[in-house]
Write a protein that binds this DNA or RNA. Structure first.
Lengths: 238, 238
DNA sequence: CGTGCCGAAATTGTATGCAATCTTACCGGT
DNA sequence: ACCGGTAAGATTGCATACAATTTCGGCACG
């Protein structure tokens, strides 16, 4: 649960890359002991969202441009392979879920404000996860969860356009191909979509090289808003 | 470190699938507190080698035939994509490392006894990891580490022929293609190799359905042999 | 003024203690 | 004999305590 909240905060950029995640501080924030915090941090370290250095602590990941490229290279390998499987196995109710999510997405797209933007980013990520879920391979689904989370961080770091990446209506096209049972076409569209996203990035050696003055957790936007009553869905982006 | 030892034990089948991993017991075995054991178990749960149930404990994973198929489906997606990248980036020293590993492998193939068999399995897995390492994508490398470990478990569970899977000389052919810079060919050979491996499996609904009498850790072959002085390389198989 | 060293404070790594939950064995009832 | 309930034991989840390591400020020295 704490892990999910921290992941949200990282992906949302409420925790700046490079920020030190003090175990005691985070523990106080969520009102749990360091034991639980350590478990959450270990989990996030696995997902690549935080980097842990022995005897020094954990830090929000600050992916280099090279790592960013690796994230998208991995996506390019896995996601197009998901599409044909999804096209085969998709049920009508899943199509409905997809459509609903798309509407939600475009709604958010038309709203203003950072909250809507964040929600849009999450919804957009969930699109990709839904694709993976329908494909039916739980291992690849988990890989995609990690890749989506990491790509969110990358986009937050290197993204150029405010409306980053998802204004093209790519998702709609992909869904259409899926509905037409055309896995091949869907795979192609997915690839093109990833190209679009990566094209919106500015990966010129900045980022990690600037040892940014990373604030404490608690400076900017609050990490835990109100009561964290759990039951939060996955929260990623593309 | 404890994580690596446990992983070795699981992959080697010294810990039978389904075996309960009692925190206190494992802690005594390695002479550490439960805290450390829990961290190791959490890590292995992430890799899919142990399953943890809340308030009930951790158990060595007992993959179903369906999970097994998912493992290989994932491999089929990722590994062929690795081959072209590896073919491009391979240096002469890496070729040498490959050749050496291959010789080592065939040496082990000609030996008898369970020790040699295990070493062969490990070496065989390392071949695949070396491929991923050369491809240069650390994220995909980590995915492959997980897939190789899981496939080892699957082969241990469902493998049919004793000389499982790797007598074909597939590895040699793959290396040849890589040396010829023929990434396309290498990818094809990798796919064929995965087919060979999966063909050697017997995935007919047994396995998880038989709630096997899982022994305690400590029954069969010892889990920790002598002093566990760390510095053990990765230890997987194909 | 800059540099290196030392000690205090802070932070992480590990062990241990306690409460909550699950497992198991026993026991009475049917 | 079988079944359900219950209490004791065992095991996990979490919090806390302590040791090891790092970080940071001050101070002497060049």
């Amino acid at each position: 649960m704490i892990r999910d909240h921290l992941r949200d905060a990282i992906v949302d950029r409420r925790l700046a890359p490079g920020t030190k995640l003090n175990e005691a501080e985070v523990g106080t924030l969520f009102d749990v002991s360091r034991t639980v915090v350590r478990a959450a941090l270990q989990a996030l370290a696995f997902e690549g969202l935080v980097k842990t250095e022995r005897n020094r602590g954990s830090f929000v990941a600050n992916p280099t441009p090279d790592e960013a490229r690796q994230v998208f290279a991995s996506c390019r390998l896995i996601e197009p392979g998901l599409a044909p499987a999804a096209a085969q196995q998709m049920t009508t109710s899943e199509v409905a879920a997809f459509r609903e999510r798309l509407h939600h997405e475009s709604d958010l797209l038309n709203q203003r404000g950072p909250t809507a933007r964040r929600a849009e980013i999450h919804a957009s990520g969930d699109f990709h996860l839904l694709l993976a879920k329908i494909a039916g391979n739980t291992i690849l689904l988990r890989f995609m969860e990690e890749l989506v989370a990491r790509s969110s961080l990358v986009i937050a770091l290197y993204g150029r356009s405010g409306a980053s990446s998802c204004g093209h209506g790519d998702h709609g096209n992909i869904l259409s191909a899926l509905e037409a049972w055309d896995g091949e076409q869907a795979a192609q569209l997915v690839l093109a979509h990833i190209d679009h996203i990566e094209a919106d990035l500015d990966l010129r050696a900045t980022g990690n090289l600037t040892p940014r003055r990373a604030g404490h957790p608690g400076d900017g936007v609050p990490i835990v808003s109100g009561d964290y009553d759990g039951q939060r869905a996955s929260t990623k982006q593309f």
